[in-house]
Design a protein around this nucleic acid. Structure first.
Length: 645
RNA sequence: GCCGAUGUAGCUCAACGGUAGAGCAACUGAUUUGUAAUCAGUAGGUUGGAGGUUCGAUUCCUCUCAUCGGCUCCA
């Protein structure tokens, strides 16, 4: 072995060190300040601990908290510290797994005791001690049999199960203080690094995610490199709570879900219904522009229809039980497609009719297990902004491009410009000819590429009846929400024996695309509420202007303004209660009404209004015609105020 | 569905074995007010529902319903 090794340092420079020197030492020599923030390193592209020794000519790159890898390492190490704290405080608790996740980490434990919120504080205290003691994380590679012996002695049967599934002969353990865990690593150098953490919640989780396995107790947590980041995170959590559509929906009287009606069934209150109506009008207008024909279909149909469509087979678990009417069974619809198909089938179709686009805001009912319901995000009765496109195979790609454009422009208007796109391909269990699948998948892929849209491929993630594109929008808080879906269906056209006469005079089977752009109006509304934090842009606001006289001397003038605004097509309210103007302003601000028109003596005299904008404050005095013009522009342009978080 | 937590006035929360209390909202009155809460008064609850323990239950127990956080799944 050479005495000296040549090391390429993070800045690209080269330097010689004696072989066997630890990376941490080399980094300290390289740059004290940078070394301090290092959690681990890439050694020749391989993620390793800082304690790893350099034995050959190498390249070193620092991993710090700012990178994905850094966060994962940091969170993973925090989960080890938490697990130790839990075992210290509650002897006998068994360890399952404790990985880092998107936003933090968790650890699953098996114990008779059920953790309570107060326990989190105790665990945090113990964690603080462990952090203070600054135990180094020690890596140890050993034979699998040795590791098995260690965990057998500790009675860690979940670890033994994991070990038994590993193919390698040698495995890695990490130890800090007296806590040992099976772990590939790397880890932060010592527990002292993890100063800023917070345990967030306790939840049940099945071992390996399967309902057949025992239920474990999971503790979620988060940690950061600096206190600032942790504070910011906690602030963001607060903000998310404040924006929760269930909270805002109640405060602003947008919707409710009543016990007496049933879980997952939404009552749209006047203000929420107003917003929905505006979105629907917009939707209808856009669909007509894009060559769709609007239809209406019933909420129930003979069970037979659902048998023919195949839903009673593959979709039964999500369907409400059928109801009996005059010895016939009827089924509440979980989807709209069979109806649309029957409209397609109502007459002989020619290639000249294609692509035929039938659209409907169709109310569907699906049985969702009680535990999964969540505000407007997950309900049992919802309205799909559904459409079905019947076309020839050659039209596929063009139709998908049109769909993507349509969806993205609509979402842009509703102020969603960030999204993730997924292309899901053929699953193992599926129907249809291979060549159809390939053509359809190619069409989807080509369309995405032509539009220069980035996407991820979810291999085998398609429905059994066809491949699909899913689009998730990202809200201001950076959370993704399932939105647009574009799905091919090779199943239903077969089952209903769909056909059209092509230019060659022969019958052919059309391709069918199911698509929803907003997904469901309920969920989309929930997303919108949180995205805007309840402060809807002017064009969507259920109340756009509130006129507020300062004293009752201005009541008649304010009534004049109110009726003028109404004539101009605005949604107006007047607050002529016997209250101080500050009180009225406070009310209007809390209700997030975009514009407040304040009229006092001066305004009556000069025949104008004082205008106050929600969140911005006083804009000064305006001539009524002038401000009406301004607001009309704002509505017409569907202007969105910056949606700050 | 499963695990855990929660459920008190329209809303936010308090009380805790001795038949519930505040703030806001509502209503009434006074006040006539200039850019985020004027004052006073009135009314409002079989403490989610059912059963049990007890002289007595909002409080303890059982069941049930719903909500919340997850597991899983999806529009």
């Amino acid at each position: 072995m050479a005495d000296k090794v040549s090391v390429v340092l993070p800045d690209g420079s080269k330097k010689e060190y004696s072989a066997g020197m630890a990376i941490s030492q080399i980094l300290r020599d390289f740059n004290q300040a940078l070394a301090k923030g290092a959690l681990a390193t890439f050694l020749n592209g391989r993620m390793v601990d800082l304690s790893e020794k350099v034995q050959e000519d190498s390249e070193i790159k620092i991993i710090n908290f700012d990178s994905e890898e850094g966060k994962e390492i940091f969170w993973h190490s925090t989960s080890h510290v938490m697990a130790q704290a839990v075992q210290d405080l509650f002897p006998g608790v068994k360890l399952a797994i404790g990985p880092p996740i998107k936003g933090g980490f968790y650890y699953d434990f098996d114990t008779q005791k059920s953790f309570e919120p107060e326990d989190l504080a105790r665990i945090e205290l113990r964690m603080k001690e462990i952090v203070k003691q600054n135990h180094p994380f020690k890596r140890r590679e050993l034979a699998k049999s040795e590791a098995e012996e260690i965990f057998r002695q500790k009675g860690e049967n979940y670890k033994l199960e994991i070990l038994s599934e590993l193919e390698e002969d040698r495995v890695v353990l990490y130890q800090h203080d007296d806590f040992v865990d099976l772990c590939r690593g790397p880890h932060v150098p010592a527990t002292g690094v993890i100063k800023n953490f917070k345990l967030l919640s306790i939840a049940g989780a099945y071992w390996k995610g399967s309902e057949k396995n025992p239920m474990l107790q999971r503790i979620y947590g988060i940690s950061f490199a600096t206190k600032d980041e942790l504070d910011q995170y906690l602030k963001r959590m607060e903000e998310m709570k404040r924006r929760d559509h269930r909270v805002v929906g109640k405060e602003l009287e947008l919707f409710s879900i009543s016990d007496e009606v049933g879980p997952g069934l939404v009552l749209w209150h006047p203000k929420g219904a107003m917003i929905r109506r505006i979105i629907e009008d917009f939707w209808v207008e856009e669909h007509q522009k894009h060559g769709y024909q609007l239809i209406y279909t019933p909420h129930v149909a003979r069970l037979h229809l659902w048998e023919r469509s195949g839903h009673t087979g593959f979709y039964q678990e999500y369907m409400y039980s059928p109801m009996q009417v005059e010895d016939e069974h009827y089924q509440l619809k979980p989807m709209n497609c069979p109806f649309h198909i029957l409209i397609y089938k109502s007459k002989l179709r020619s290639y000249r009719d294609l692509p035929l686009k039938l659209a409907e805001l169709g109310a569907c009912y699906r049985y969702e297990r009680s535990g999964v319901l969540q505000g407007l995000f997950r309900v049992r009765g919802f309205t799909m902004d559904d459409a079905h496109i019947f076309c020839k195979r050659e039209q596929l790609e063009e139709e998908v491009i049109k769909l993507l454009d349509f969806s993205l422009s609509m979402l842009k208007t509703l102020s969603f410009e960030k999204y993730q796109i997924f292309l899901s391909t053929r699953p193992d269990k599926s129907i249809g000819e291979e060549k159809n699948w390939e053509k359809a998948q190619d069409a989807l892929r080509l369309a995405l590429e032509k539009q220069e849209l980035e996407f991820e491929v979810d291999e085998g993630g398609g429905a059994f009846y066809g491949p699909k594109i899913d689009l998730k929008i990202e809200d201001v808080m950076g959370r993704p929400h399932q939105c647009t879906t574009i799905q091919f269906d090779f199943n239903i056209p077969e089952r209903f024996d769909l056909s059209f006469v092509d230019s060659d005079g022969n019958f052919h089977r059309p391709i069918m695309i199911h698509r929803a752009l907003l997904g469901s109006l309920e969920r989309f509304f929930g997303v919108l509420i949180e995205h805007y934090g309840g402060a809807f842009p002017l064009w969507l606001s259920p109340v756009q202007v509130r006129v507020m006289p300062i004293t009752d001397e201005q009541n008649s003038y304010s009534a004049e303004i109110e009726s003028r605004l109404k004539e101009e097509g605005f949604r107006v309210e007047r607050d002529d209660r016997n209250e101080k103007i500050n009180y009225k302003i406070r009310k209007a601000e809390k209700e997030k009404i975009p514009y407040m028109f304040i009229v006092g003596k001066k305004e009556v005299q000069d025949k104008n209004v004082s205008v106050r904008r929600h969140k911005k404050g006083d804009l000064g005095r305006f001539d009524l015609d002038e401000i009406i013009q301004k607001l009309k522009e704002e509505v017409k342009n569907k202007t969105v105020q910056p949606v700050a978080i």
